[in-house]
Nucleic acid binder design. Structure first.
Length: 283
DNA sequence: AGCCAGGCCCTCC
DNA sequence: GGAGGGCCTGGC
């Protein structure tokens, strides 16, 4: 079915740009498992063509629309964050690049796995967890698994996660799974909580520090002021905002600086800085 | 072959 | 309180 949309949209950058790790591009479509469904999507003139199963498209399409945040007014947001030559260029170059609204648990595990790692490896880790511990879906001869629930990963345990190649992150994922399965932390309620409160809750989990916590807040928990500072963001800020270097701001101090500087939608600024710097020189 | 990755934790100062 | 080393493993 068609999800009608006439605003700006850059689906490829959103799905394959390092926000999420299970999207695959094949035969002109992007494929993933979301909301316990096979989901396929592609960008067309009038919006997004969408297919899913086993559930009805009419049920999943609204969820997928929210996932893509089509209601964010990117023109207005772009204006508020275009503070500086390079980010303005990136806003214009990657026009329509939106922050995803991911499923919180999968997002949390993905970014725990991101520590001292790289995108190809994170993708492998996340896909391996799904294949080994998630429940399988089958459709038209294709088999792929849902991302495992907290219970399923808690049952798997640290050793089996290590066997998949998660390394020292296995302990953190296993502990987080137990914690969420027990209900110690309710991720969905953090969507309603304040930024500060939600960040504090997340950092209470082992393996989640300021950077990873801000990724989860931004990509899954509706905190568009979140501003994860990784090596790419640090490079971009130091090169493009010399005042930060002059003030000798440490990496830790860059987050509050950026949140003040870019404002309510600092998270969007983050995404454009990230793309702009990481893809510098590539076309 | 060897370096380093989209950090975090722990220790020690 | 903050700076520095160690950590699993696999891409490149």
């Amino acid at each position: 079915m068609l999800i009608r949309f006439d605003g700006i949209l850059e689906l490829e950058g959103m799905l394959l740009g390092g926000q999420a790790f299970r999207w695959r591009f094949e035969d002109g479509w992007f494929h993933n498992v979301l909301f316990n469904n096979f989901v396929s999507a592609r960008q067309v003139d009038k919006g997004v063509e969408f297919a899913c199963g086993p559930d009805d498209e009419s049920v999943i399409a609204p969820l997928f629309r929210d996932y893509l945040r089509l209601d964010d007014d990117l023109v207005a947001i772009g204006k508020t964050i275009s503070k500086g030559e390079q980010i303005s260029a990136a806003v214009s170059k990657y026009q329509g690049l939106r922050i995803l609204r991911q499923e919180p648990w999968e997002c949390l595990v993905s970014f725990i796995c991101s520590a001292n790692s790289n995108i190809p490896r994170i993708s492998t880790n996340v896909e391996d967890m799904a294949r080994n511990f998630g429940h399988a879906l089958e459709m038209n001869g294709h088999v792929r698994s849902a991302f495992p629930t907290p219970d399923e990963l808690a049952d798997a345990g640290e050793q089996k996660l290590r066997d998949l190649g998660l390394g020292f992150r296995a302990k953190y994922v296993a502990a987080a799974a137990v914690c969420i399965a027990r209900g110690d932390v309710d991720l969905f309620s953090l969507r309603e909580a304040s930024y500060d409160e939600a960040l504090e809750e997340l950092i209470g989990l082992a393996g989640i520090g300021d950077k990873v916590g801000n990724c989860i807040l931004l990509f899954a928990l509706d905190k568009r002021q979140a501003f994860p500072v990784d090596v790419w963001i640090e490079r971009a800020i130091k090169e493009w905002y010399p005042e930060v270097v002059e003030q000798k701001l440490t990496r830790k101090a860059m987050r509050p600086w950026a949140q003040e500087f870019f404002g309510t939608y600092a998270g969007y600024a983050n995404q454009y800085l990230f793309h702009g710097r990481r893809l510098q020189g590539k076309d």
